[in-house]
Design a protein around this nucleic acid. Structure first.
Lengths: 108, 108
DNA sequence: ACGATCCATCGTCGTTCGGCGATTTAGGGC
DNA sequence: GCCCTAAATCGCCGAACGACGATGGATCGT
């Protein structure tokens, strides 16, 4: 139940890990992780291999609107995907973005 | 000339990569990297294995005071070390902090 | 001792972040 | 159609960020 759709299935990332564009990219990804609540959300989603939705709100003792903002930030950064599942929305990791982040971090 | 002193020489980092404390730690490190100029500074310092000081100002087309702020942020985050070298200050990577960041990023 | 240089810090300004309650939007169930 | 629930969005607020110029403190050269 409520599993996210399949990944868009990208091959290995060919973009460079250096240069001005890569710097901006890493900075943007880092900014998306620059808050404990967002790191926690990412870990929650990683632990349960299935997707959860409003359960995140229950775990975080933050208001629903605040959690929604955090989710939006990470989604825009490409770290999460959110699929609509009936009246709910199912979030899960975007492993592509996560891999990209790790690759950029590893290049330091 | 102008090489930083030796690293404080820490063994392998024993702190956990998960839990609330680790989340806060990763968030803090990520915040320190959440700006293109700071990523760039880190890369500049990584490229030249010797330390540079005000040369960073020349490369960044930012005001000297702004660069100083960025350096302070990364120093406080444990990503840089700054050793006084006569009238100049010699910045270089704190490989301990950098390793820690990579370890935390890799745990995602 | 003096001026010059390097860097840090201060004060200011506009922008963005992070939080919340309240409201809107979108589906599902009856 | 109507309500109920889940989630997004809006509006507001205080706090922090990011940039700058100006000022201050330390050190070198002369």
């Amino acid at each position: 139940m409520t599993d996210c759709g399949a990944e868009p299935l990208g091959g290995p990332d060919l973009r460079p890990v250096e240069g001005a564009a890569a710097d901006a990219e890493l900075a943007a990804l880092a900014k998306a992780l620059a808050h404990p609540a967002r790191v926690r959300i990412l870990r929650l989603l990683a632990r349960r291999n299935t997707c959860i939705c409003g359960e995140i709100v229950d775990e975080l003792d933050l208001a629903q609107s605040t959690v929604s903002q955090h989710l939006k930030i990470m989604k825009n950064a490409g770290l999460l995907r959110g699929d609509i599942d009936g009246p709910r929305v199912c979030y899960c990791l975007d492993s592509r973005g996560l891999r990209r982040f790790k690759a950029l971090a590893g290049s330091l």
